[in-house]
Design a protein around this nucleic acid. Sequence first.
DNA 1: GTGAAAGCGCTAACAT
DNA 2: ATGTTAGCGCTTTCAC
Lengths: 329, 329
Amino acid sequence: MVTIKEVAKKANVAVSTASYALNGIKKVSPETKEKVLQAARELNYRKNGFASDLKRNSTKTLALILSDLSGPFYSELIRGVQDVATDHGYDLIACSAIGGENSTAAKFLTEHRVDGCIVLAHNITDEMLKNVAHHHFPIILLDREIEIDSTVHVRVSNKRGGFKATEYLIQNGHTDIAFVSGPSNSYDNKMRFAGYQEALQAYNIEPQNKWVVSGNFTREGGESAANILAAQDQGPTAVFFANDEMAVGGMEAFQKRGISIPNDISIIGFDDILEAKYVNPKLTTIRQPKYEMGASATHLIFQMLKNEKVNPIFELHTDLIIRESVKKL
Amino acid sequence: MVTIKEVAKKANVAVSTASYALNGIKKVSPETKEKVLQAARELNYRKNGFASDLKRNSTKTLALILSDLSGPFYSELIRGVQDVATDHGYDLIACSAIGGENSTAAKFLTEHRVDGCIVLAHNITDEMLKNVAHHHFPIILLDREIEIDSTVHVRVSNKRGGFKATEYLIQNGHTDIAFVSGPSNSYDNKMRFAGYQEALQAYNIEPQNKWVVSGNFTREGGESAANILAAQDQGPTAVFFANDEMAVGGMEAFQKRGISIPNDISIIGFDDILEAKYVNPKLTTIRQPKYEMGASATHLIFQMLKNEKVNPIFELHTDLIIRESVKKL
DNA sequence: GTGAAAGCGCTAACAT
DNA sequence: ATGTTAGCGCTTTCAC
């Protein structure tokens, strides 16, 4: 490996001069600069980023921690993060939390390898986050329930969204409304369900246990939930899937059984994934402001980096997107 | 920031001893070890990963360079990379090549921040790759045309795949076969088109310029290509979309115009994306072995790291996946 | 088993 | 404008 020392020697200057030249610091005369650059080129010099970060005590990079790099994820959200990071001259890397304590995520979280982290991973334990969170190392948690000291949460109003979805169904004349839930340990799911229940109550509709079935947030889960619902003597006239992924699977399952959407049954989802508008009929759903979530999270990091005080909770709103999958009764 | 020095002081040992204890090196007696660990806990010590990497001169991490972190990408491929990296005790980070010379990707490529790179990004120039590639820094290029010294290429047999797709159409009685191409600067696209042409020639079918339309590898591009094709007096009986993304868009566009698939027109794609089997009718396509691409690329990196000789080109094969979108004439 | 000390490659304060 | 040098936090050789 060729170091700055060798470059300096070849250019007949001191290391400091070489460093200044290489970093474009004006102190150095144009001729010396060119000499250094030339030497660097000839030696094919590449700086050692770690050494430089170590010295400067700053990495100018942010990490985005995801449950699984290869999982499906919100590209809009990432774009939000990326845009803001770039605006501030920061780099962004993504890493996976698979492996828990031994994951790449853990390494970045604990070893001062980045200046801040955005965590969108449910496989990172609260325990670990607690151990790592301290001042001067900003951590933003997305969609987490538990509050952790010196950590900031960015959330979406899942409960209000669940309420809106259910209310929209009710306003279209539905009273027999099923809820297909995600995994029970999911904070998102819990809140969306709470919104569903609240809406039923607000409109004096008796909740029915048989109409709450679970679907694990996956397409397949949505299919089997739809099949369970369709097999009942007296099925619901509408179903609220706790995410679009399941709604898409559910729609397919209903249609396969000859049940027409929205004529025989109305469907509403949650998330507004890309596919929602390509499915047939187009899916009515609750949109999460994903780009804004990413952008806000990143803005918060920079505020924290500047030692500004930030509110520990930042909540964003949801919108009802009306398309074609709900019929007025 | 609390350093190992402070831990050592608190534990009343030398830094070296603290280092041994912290790294689980057996030299140190159980009691001293416990003393050190205790001190570290109390001080909430986090090691500085850079300092350690700098000293060890190895990062034990690989970078996966993508055109755009927020773009749609092959999660199967990433899983392949991830699995193999993990097996070798390496970490994996993903970063974006947006910004070219100033991108995060460039930083990782040039600054010795990782032990090897897998590049799946067309916005990294050959020039840059050339400057960076040298022995002891393994770089694997995915789906690239130009060969670069001391760099290894993993490819898929796009041309054979294009041939197979076209041949399958021909074997089903089609002779009026359109080709919807991707961006002209894409190596994948070029090769798939070459396969298409070769198949036509092999079966003595006259190629028709009016049946080659471009679609930019996007869903929208597929839609407009389909619309162009559908508007022709005498349209094709089959169309080969150079990727599934476009095929899905094209199918929707055809169906919107009342053209039935596969009754009125047959469709074949390329890639076998997840959606291919959820679309209606299910899409017949050419599958790329994406997991294997990722896994092979990563294996190659480790071979290079061990200074083993590797072949500069590694080609994987494609398979025809027959589903429902092609009809026998 | 433990400690002292060199040094990884770089930056920046200070001296010239 | 350029050079000398301390030191970032860590690992590891060598001496005890």
